[in-house]
Amino acid sequence: MTVYLLCLVLFLIGVYCILVKRNLIKIIIGLAISEYAVNLFLILAGYRMRGRAPIFSGDQAVANMVDPLPQALVLTAIVIGLGSTALLITLAVRLYEKYGTFDITRIRELRG
């Protein structure tokens, strides 16, 4: 249970970063951290104590695998996360080019 709590703490660090920081890159970093925490949480929920990786091998009699379903879903989530992060960074670079700053409060003041 402590593992879940530590994972939640990691998620909350990311959320805190998104809410409080004013720098666009910092906000992207916060999003990435909370994404890592959610991925890790799903894998933790599917872990079986002393289980083995979900790959069939010769000795099929032993079947105490970890849960493969969260792993499959998180696999797609990681790649989607990369795509969305790239899109966010592109937006940030575009904003920097237009306003010359990453600070969202100053971008708001500069408007137009």
């Binding site: 790649v79 990369l82 795509g83 790239a86 960074i89 592109t90 670079v93 920097y96 080019e97 010359g100």
Partner: peptide
């Protein structure tokens, strides 16, 4: 799909001139 897509993102970002 993934390889070409990520390489496209990289080239687009690196080739983009900045201030």
């Amino acid at each position: 799909n993934v390889g070409a897509g990520l390489f496209t993102i990289f080239v687009a970002l690196v080739g983009f001139p900045v201030r």
